[in-house]
Design a protein around this nucleic acid. Structure first.
Lengths: 204, 204
DNA sequence: TGGAATTACTGAACACTGTTCAGTATATTT
DNA sequence: AAATATACTGAACAGTGTTCAGTAATTCCA
């Protein structure tokens, strides 16, 4: 049946149109200014139409989050390619933190905002972050196989490295490092220094 | 002048009434459900009245944030009292993470939500977190004086410890550890294990 | 090919949000 | 007692996510 195939294809294209518009608006105008109405305006449809393709805003955000994660994975695949597991781990660390600081609104969607996780909760599992997490855990696995890390449990290693990276990014993008009273430039340097120092301490 | 004194006192009492109501609603009903109208309802005033005491919602949240930080400081002063600098640092670490996980909505206001920082931005500085941060940095200073930490720069030490703690709490309260596919109980254990392991690695 | 059935979309409406402000009621001053 | 100053109200405005009766276009079937 060719017609229902086309219908299905058009439906997927419409979903694409919506999430592409949403993603662009997040990056260009910020998360806060991106409302259902604004997205609808941008793609020249009525607000109601969006609800024919996504059950609610949470579900739309879940789809955009997925998109953001695939962008992060691309970044990892471009910037963390060393054949040495340890160097690759270092590359991931810097890549992660830079991604967060350079794309604060995508980072919000991926790791800070509640909304998309409501959909994950309903679905029963959250798969959007799987590939990026695997990129990290695989590298950690490689490091530990060769005895390059001072951890005994790979899950503790993953939790530590991720939490350190996320802590640095999220406190920075949410302005909490203001308490340290450093100039912007100094603060950036300090963050990089902290990553370097952390990597040094976990190295076997 | 007795009357203007009383007026001033009444004004402060009204501000108290508002932030106390707001703080209670954050804890009891959650941040999301706490609107200006709901706060006004709770204290039995009209919504407009709140704007006679706080310029906008950001300013009100700034005041509530201050309150939350003083609650955290009280927790530190109750739970991190060891005379040994190293043990005190350990106590602060666990105290911080437990506070965040037990009071997620206050933690939001203190370290995650943007709104209160808009007021800090306008004021030019953010003082709400000063006392808690000082509690940490003083203890770090004590540790380093006695050569108990593997850090050379106390600012890097503070940044590292805080970021690790914040990373653990915020990824947990925002459900991102779902990617690890562990049961709730296991996840909590893993977080505690990670703190222990981190403290072990930074100890001289 | 023409009429019926299905599908896609609209936009007004609902209940909510933060915020403003003319109007009122109370308290203070003269 | 009258004039002034203060405190408060609540309707109104522009925005939000979401729903749904109504319309327009498309597809199906006789």
């Amino acid at each position: 049946m060719g017609i229902s195939d086309r219908k299905e294809r058009e439906k997927q294209e419409m979903k694409r149109l919506i999430i592409d518009a949403a993603l662009r608006m997040f990056v260009e105008d910020g998360y806060e200014k991106t409302s259902i109405r604004n997205i609808a305006d941008k793609i020249e449809y009525s607000p109601g139409t969006i609800y024919l393709y996504y059950k609610d805003k949470d579900e739309l955000l879940y789809a955009v989050q997925k998109e953001a994660f695939s962008k992060m994975l691309e970044t990892f695949q471009a910037e963390a390619t060393s054949r040495s597991p340890w160097k690759r781990l270092e590359q991931i660390a810097y890549s992660y933190v830079n991604f967060g600081i350079n794309h604060p609104d995508l980072y919000d969607l991926m790791f800070i905002i509640r909304a998309p996780m409501n959909t994950a909760e309903k679905k029963g599992d959250w798969e959007n972050g799987d590939d990026c997490f695997k990129y990290l855990t695989d590298t950690i696995g490689d490091c530990m196989e060769k005895g390059l890390l001072r951890y005994t449990d790979p899950r503790v290693a993953a939790l530590s490295i991720w939490s350190m990276g996320h802590g640095l990014v999220s406190l920075q993008v949410r302005c909490r490092f203001k308490v340290m009273q450093l100039a912007d430039e100094q603060m950036s340097q300090m963050i990089n220094l902290t990553i370097r120092e952390f990597l040094r301490t976990i190295k076997a």
